[in-house]
């Protein structure tokens, strides 16, 4: 039994288990860049695992390694009882069908010369699941699912707005009826009003189809509202893992607390100041010994520079990697 499975309330089964996953890139001069450092996380069937952290902290690398876009340096990813990272050939191909991805900028992923219907049906055709004669009907069905007009099927993607293209990206990712959908900053390029509609769509589809989301986002507010479980990453490490709705009142890690203090509120009072933490994230090329957050942590002690804190459970469903947690 993996310790990460312990949670407070009765939970759906684990669908994806990331175990001690590490990804190092070799960069210029043969140096090692540690993008993901021994990450362990569980995603539950039909729920959303939110991942938050700043640009470059390794969120995309984590999911890209899970999706085998990158070759893992070490670790396991258990899906349906098997290690995804060991799967080969036809098995790997079928796995890819079950785990799909929605990107930040779907335009980059679409061929501008293809009509919407062909973009939508391309994955199904690649898997030999759709005949040419069925394309129009299937495209209409997928467009309806994401609340777009059916006559969009004969358009080209560049004639559509960012929000509409993002709906296409979702429809395409869902066309193969995946069990898991990875949303990597899927709404970051959109205004908040369109973002809200896309999130409502994602949630409706989750409820209808029991999809599990890995939802990566650097907007603390949004990820809090979307997730059943929330992982906070810093410099390639998960530093805190919380259940839904807990972050605003119960966050314990100094980095998570710093995140909360730096959120800009629309209704701030004139003269009210935000409190950004000082300093910069260390380079992933030379990760310090000890705690990854030491260079910016007010509570840092000598011990933190020597010993790396491990993620440990402090209450049901709540894990923190810090030596000096205040209660």
């Amino acid at each position: 039994m993996n310790k990460f499975k312990q949670q407070s309330s009765a939970l759906p089964p684990v669908i994806l288990e990331i175990k001690n996953l590490t990804k190092k890139f070799t960069v210029e001069g043969g140096r090692q860049l540690t993008a993901c450092d021994n990450v362990s996380l569980c995603a539950y069937a039909g729920q959303t695992l939110g991942i938050i952290g700043e640009s470059g902290c390794g969120k995309s690398t984590l999911v890209r390694t899970v999706l085998q876009i990158h070759l893992a340096t070490s670790g396991e990813v258990i899906f349906e009882g098997q290690d995804l990272l060991q799967a080969k050939g036809e098995k790997a191909r079928q796995n890819r069908r079950k785990i799909q991805m929605v990107f930040q900028d779907p335009t980059a992923a679409f061929n501008p010369k293809m009509k919407v219907k062909n973009i939508l049906c391309e994955p199904l055709k690649n898997f030999g699941l759709l005949k040419d004669s069925e394309v129009d009907a299937k495209a209409c069905e997928l467009l309806r699912m994401v609340e777009l007009p059916e006559d969009f099927k004969d358009r080209y993607p560049h004639n559509m707005s960012g929000g509409q293209r993002q709906r296409l990206g979702i429809a395409r990712a869902l066309s193969l009826e995946p069990k898991i959908v990875v949303c990597d900053e899927a709404t970051s390029a959109l205004d908040v009003s369109v973002q809200e509609k896309i999130c409502e769509l994602l949630v409706r589809l989750q409820k209808e189809k029991g999809i599990t989301y890995l939802f990566i986002c650097h907007d603390l507010g949004l990820v809090d509202l979307m997730s059943h479980q929330l992982a906070v990453m810093y410099l390639g490490n998960v530093v805190e893992l919380l259940e839904k709705g807990r972050i605003s009142q119960h966050a314990k890690h100094p980095y998570t607390k710093a995140l909360l203090q730096a959120v800009f509120k629309v209704d701030f009072k004139p003269g009210e100041k935000i409190q950004p933490i000082e300093g910069e994230v260390p380079s992933p090329l030379d990760i310090p010994q000890g705690c990854p957050f030491q260079s910016r942590c007010e509570k840092c002690q000598e011990y933190c520079r020597r010993e790396k804190p491990i993620l440990r459970q402090i209450e049901a469903g709540h894990w923190v990697a810090c030596h000096f947690i205040e209660w």
């Binding site: 507010g221 809090d224 059943h228 959120v263």
Partner: peptide, 26 residues
């Protein structure tokens, strides 16, 4: 604009801002 928005679109935008600890989507 923030305190006394007039246009319906401005109001819609302001209402859609996700707030930590706010109303969950699901």
């Amino acid at each position: 604009v923030i305190g006394k928005p007039q246009h319906s679109y401005t109001k819609e935008l302001l209402a859609a801002v996700p707030v930590v600890g706010g109303k969950r989507y699901y």
